[in-house]
């Protein structure tokens, strides 16, 4: 419980946790509070927030309830955040672990592959993947995971390279453990903390990537996503700017929550960096 107590001593980390809980509650409460399809026509279009008691965040230019879209949109952002990040981190750990553990030619080949992914702009590759495989929400989630693995891979590789000749690893090797056991049960648990902290950066980026795609109308149009709503509201930006403003604040707060939790975890898991 020691780590948890240390986490709770940090006010900005608590703020992050609270914000994140709010987003989770929005996602969980979406079906209870707004059981209707959030993308269905709900009332007269372009009613300002608080102007009508039924629509306390107003309606967009298609007459859809903005509050309902915010609640349901939280699900998409969390889905993207959790699933795409898991894909990226698992892929990154696999590539980084193999490259860092074996070194030599395998390392060289895997690192040139990682370089290739880092040279090609993330967003451009994402556009390519969407152009080829379509913009279903599943495709979008997988595509975002596919473009986000290089940084965790590099981090894992660096950890593995510094750990692979430590005494406890050599001892385990002498006692006859195979490569797989050494990688997964000896080295990986020790290499994991910085990668877990970095996962928060991957998650923040993933949420931003999806919202940008949705804003450009390249994400799934059939799910309620905050980015979609901003893209939709763009045509009435000059007068009814609230249609764009509200979902943007939702994205901002969610990404902020993820970053703050990540920083809090970092201070707990990597105490030597916590000297300011």
């Amino acid at each position: 419980m020691h780590a948890f107590q240390r986490y709770l001593r940090n006010p900005s980390a608590i703020l992050g946790l609270v914000l994140l809980l709010v987003v989770v509650l929005l996602a969980l409460g979406a079906d209870v509070i707004f059981p209707r399809n959030p993308l269905a026509l709900a009332g007269r279009p372009l009613q300002w927030p608080l102007a009508n008691a039924r629509f306390w965040l107003g309606t967009d230019n298609l007459g859809r309830d903005i509050a309902a879209q915010i609640f349901h949109g939280a699900r998409i952002s969390l889905l993207i955040g959790v699933v795409a990040t898991s894909i990226a981190v698992v892929l990154g750990i696999l590539v980084g672990a193999v490259a860092g553990y074996y070194g030599g030619l395998i390392d060289e080949v895997l690192m040139r592959l990682t370089d290739a992914f880092q040279i090609l702009p993330n967003f451009l590759l994402l556009l390519l993947l969407i152009a080829v495989f379509g913009s279903h929400i599943e495709t979008v989630v997988i595509a975002i995971g596919m473009v986000s693995w290089p940084a965790p891979a590099r981090l894992t590789r660096a950890e593995f390279m510094s750990l692979r000749h430590r005494e406890f690893v050599e001892a385990a090797r002498l006692s006859g453990l195979g490569d797989l056991r050494l990688i997964f049960s000896e080295i990986l648990p020790n290499a994991l903390p910085p990668v877990i902290v970095y996962a928060s950066v991957v998650m923040a980026t993933a949420i931003l990537l999806e919202s940008a795609l949705a804003f450009l109308n390249l994400s799934d149009p059939n799910v309620s996503s905050w980015g979609n709503l901003i893209g939709q509201g763009r045509s009435v930006l000059r007068s009814e700017w609230y249609v764009c403003a509200i979902p943007g604040i939702a994205i901002l707060l969610t990404v902020l929550a993820v970053s703050l939790v990540g920083q809090g975890l970092n201070d707990v898991l990597n105490p030597r960096l916590d000297q300011q």
Binding site: A204, L208, S211, A212, F215, G227, I230, R234, L237, R238, W241, C244, A245, G248, I251, L252, L253, V255, L256, S259
Partner: peptide, 14 residues
């Protein structure tokens, strides 16, 4: 860091 760039652009435009 947490602000989506396209949204910031739109708000700046407004």
């Amino acid at each position: 860091y947490a602000t989506p760039s396209f949204w910031l652009g739109l708000m700046g435009m407004v």
